[in-house]
Each structure stands twice: as C-alpha cells, then as structure tokens.
Design a protein around this nucleic acid. Structure first.
Lengths: 268, 268
DNA sequence: AACAGCTTTTCACTAGCTGAAACGCTGCCG
DNA sequence: CGGCAGCGTTTCAGCTAGTGAAAAGCTGTT
C-alpha cells in the first residue's frame, strides 16, 4: 500500500505542483472558453481563490484574457507567440507545412502530420480540406500508437523497446476493427515496415480511412508520419491507389528536404 | 520608502511566483532554443535546481521537449495545442486569416493584424510574402502604440483614457522619424480618425512603410488594425495608392464578416 | 430594497518550494 | 589511460510563500 503510493509519486518527484496546476488550468480553458472563476474551480476541483490567483498570474503574462464585462476567461495572445516560436524551432513543421497544403489541395482530403513521443503520438500539423464532410482533428492532440494510420506507421518504425512496451500494454478498442491482439499487431507492423506505407480503415474512427507513410531525417531515422485521412465513403479503389502514390511522393519530398537522401525502400 | 515597496508590490498582489517563473522560463526557451539547465539558470537568474524542476514539470506536460542526447531543452508540441485552440477561440483570427492570405498574395507584401491590449499592442496574425526583402515580424510580439502604422491606427481609435495615458507616457524614438511630441501625435491621431486609414514611414523600422486601417466589430468598436508593410524602396506613389485601396477593401471585408454593417466613413 | 450569485480580498497556517551543497556522469585533455 | 572540468541530478533541512476558509465587495435581479 505504502509502496503503491511511493510508486505513484516516483514520476512526480520533481514536479512543482503549482506550476503543474497552472498548466492544467490553461488546458481546461482551452477546452472550455469563456468560463468564470467558479466554473473553472468546479471543473478542476480547485478552490475559487486558487483559480483566481492562477488566472491572475496567467493574465499578467498574456496567456489568458479576461473579458472585463462578463468576467470570464479565455486563452490569450501570448500562447500564439509560444507556438509561433515552437513551430519555427521544429524545422520539421516549417518544412512540411507547404507540402501538406499542396497535398491536401491535390487530394481534397485532410492531411495530418504526427510525431511519436514515448509510447504515444501527437498531431503536430494539419492541412484541412474545405469539404464539408471531413475528419476533424486538432493540433497537439495526443493519441495511442495502436490505432490510426499514422500512429501505427510510427509504431512500426519505432525502436524495439517502444514497440514491445506498446504491445505489452493494454490496447483499448475504439471500434470493432481496432486491433487488440498483440500478435496480430506485431505481424501488421512487420508488414508496414516492409511496405513502407500503411492503409488503415475504421480502426480509430468508424467510417474513416487513413493512408500514411513515414518520414525520415538525414540519419535515416523515422521522425514523423504523414497521412491522408477522410471518410471511407470517398475512398474508391482507384482513389486509394492514387493516395498511396501521393502520400509516398510527398513524404519523400519532405524527407528529402529534411536531409534524407536515399529512398526508404532502396534496399528492397 | 515602505510605501514605495508596497506600491511596487501592488500589481503583483495575487501573482503566484512559481507559476510566473515557469512562464518566464518558457519565454526564455522561446528565444534561446536548445539551451541546457545551466545556460537557462544564468539567463534567468535562477538556481540550477530551480530551473531543473520547472523544466521537469513543463516537460511532463509536453510544453518543453528535452533532447536526451544533448540534454538541452526546446519548446514542446503542447504549445501548438494551446495556440490552435486560442486561434479558434479568437474568432477575429479565424475570420481574418484567409483574407490576409489573399491580400498578401495580391500586393506581394507582408500583411499584419494587430490588436490593442491596454496601452500596448500585439501582432496576432501574419501573412508573409515570399519576397526575399520583407519586414520580419513575429506573432505574439508586443509593441508600443506610438510607432508603426497599425499601432498608431489602434491608438487613434482607442478610448480617451488610453490615448491620454499613452500621450502622457514616455515616447521613445526608434528612428529619427518617430513622433515623440505628444501634441504632434495628438493631431496625427485626429487625422487618422478622419481619414479612416494611416500611412506611416520609417517611424518604427527605418526604411519600412506600413499602411493600416482599423477593423470594427458588430458594435462599431475598433477591435484590430490590418496593415500592409514592406520596404519603402518598393513603395512608389502608384503602389501606395493601390495599397490604401486594398487595405481599406480588405479591412472592410473582415469587419463585415465580424458583423459590422455600415462603412466606417459613412458619416462623411 | 433586499437578495442571490458571483468575484475579490483577507488572514493564519503549514505544506511544499527553495537554495546550497554534494554527487555522479560524460567527454576532454594531458 | 587516468584525472579533471563542467554539466545535470539528487538530497535535505529551513522557512517562505502558497494555500483554503471565510468574509467582504460587487452586480444584476425580482
């Protein structure tokens, strides 16, 4: 019992709880814009005074804006500054964005860029199609590695210890098509590595497809996955074939610009 | 003396210093990517242990990324999430961005969108021209209201108490052309209100021009300023005329989409 | 005019943040 | 090859500064 508590605390060893709470508040505000002190206090389980003081601090630095009339809070302009700087620091995003914009225009579907972080992944860039029916995703969204075209592609090219950790962990089913058997998943990952791309259907969001390919950097390491995603209803056999070609073409172009100079399938 | 200290502290009354410090660290990291613990400690005047713990906390939530090889830190992907949400919450940005992209293509110059915050202003959106010689600005950048096309436009339409506060404050000169005399500035603000737009040259960045116009929301209040900005060398009399027309055209279009339904110069 | 529901302020307590100093790793130079 | 320098990490005791509760101010409502 005591060991349990200690084990739980281990990961938090150096966490500064007031900073952590402030970040949590920011995220709550991201999901619930224009909330007041009381509402946020209830959502987060903090006291009203606590929330008031954290918001006060965040407001001083411009990370939240207070509407003086309604006395409600929303994310502030300073968050844009951080992201702008982050986007420029992460050269992958700077390089990929124009390619993604062209690709999404070309295929009329959403184009997503994912990177792996530990045993999960994050969507770091999106180029949206103007079509009404489309997959809605949002930047910064985290997801697991065992479902979805881009996540599985990242997993396929992840180091062994990461693959093993994911295969050993609980694999929740989001749809009936989600692969929850580690052995079947392991075989699929081998296939993805062999093919150099992956097409997935309805395993994360029912009725949606995703065709993904890995992106290497100069060292040949897979640093991201690019995917075309949309409703299965538009994925004819012919269109799927075109998408496969396009996603490989564009992931290759991004990789080349990132310093990768031989095709991923060169050895085969 | 004690009063002095109290007065200084007044503004900080509710600030949680550890949260404030964490935000400061994030901003330092935005300006100095790939810095290590010691470097950041020196830059911010904190102890190494302090910096280590704050970064640890920020990393846990994905706001900074640690490169395990070099043990240096940079902004993380989670900042992108916040900004994406903020951009969607701030309808102005969502509405303005496509207009700005079209405008910058049309005139081949950078297009900036500013909002006022207190007695300063912030650039909240940019659409860049691919031209080599261009004004470099960055999103989230704060500046004063007495220099630059968009800032002066915002000041011209700001409430009296804000105008007065700015006119009463120190007006630092960035270039020889910066207006530092409150009376001259006051007259110029009147002119801007009359004209409904403003053309400024070299008063913020030497050799640069900016042609700006205000954007109203449904209530008729000026909520932002749109500007075309670039090097003076490209600003022929003919091009300046075209820019004035274009900036007014586009600011009007954005305002209309924001619910504003009569032209700003209707009464004249 | 009293009320209800909110935000803001106050205050005393002690949790947990803090700085200093010691530790151990990694890469460099003799 | 071995010692040294510089860095990130860990530890720890002291006391600052973050905290919850409760009361005071607002604001708009019936």
């Amino acid at each position: 019992m005591l060991d349990q508590i200690k084990a739980d605390k281990t990961g938090m060893e150096y966490t500064i709880s007031s900073v952590d709470r402030a970040l949590a508040l920011l995220e709550v505000l991201a999901e619930h814009p224009n909330a007041g002190v009381t509402a946020i206090a209830e959502l987060t389980g903090n006291t009203k005074s606590m929330v008031f003081r954290v918001l006060f601090t965040l407001e001083q630095r411009g990370y939240v804006r207070k509407d003086p009339a309604t006395r409600t809070y929303a994310l502030g302009y300073r968050t844009l500054y951080l992201a702008d700087k982050a986007g420029n620091q992460i050269s992958l995003i700077r390089v990929a964005q124009p390619h993604m914009d062209r690709l999404s225009k070309l295929c009329n579907e959403n184009v997503h860029l994912f990177v792996r972080e530990g045993t999960g992944c994050i969507c770091v860039a999106i180029s949206e199609t103007p079509q009404q029916l489309r997959l809605s995703a949002s930047i910064g969204q985290r997801s697991m590695l065992h479902t979805g075209g881009a996540p599985k592609t990242l997993l396929a090219f992840a180091p062994d210890e990461i693959q093993q950790a994911v295969l050993d962990s609980e694999l929740p089913a989001y749809t009936p098509a989600t692969i929850t058997d580690p052995e079947i998943l392991r075989k699929l990952l081998r296939k993805i590595r062999r093919d150099g791309f992956h097409e997935s259907r309805s395993d994360k969001d029912a009725g949606a497809f995703s065709i993904a390919a890995p992106i290497c950097d100069y060292s040949g390491e897979v640093i991201a996955a690019l995917s075309i995603a949309g409703p299965e209803s538009r994925l004819t056999a012919d269109f799927a074939k075109k998408c496969r070609a396009m996603v490989l073409d564009f992931s290759g172009a991004i990789a080349t610009e990132m310093g990768w100079d031989s095709p991923i399938l060169a050895s085969r």
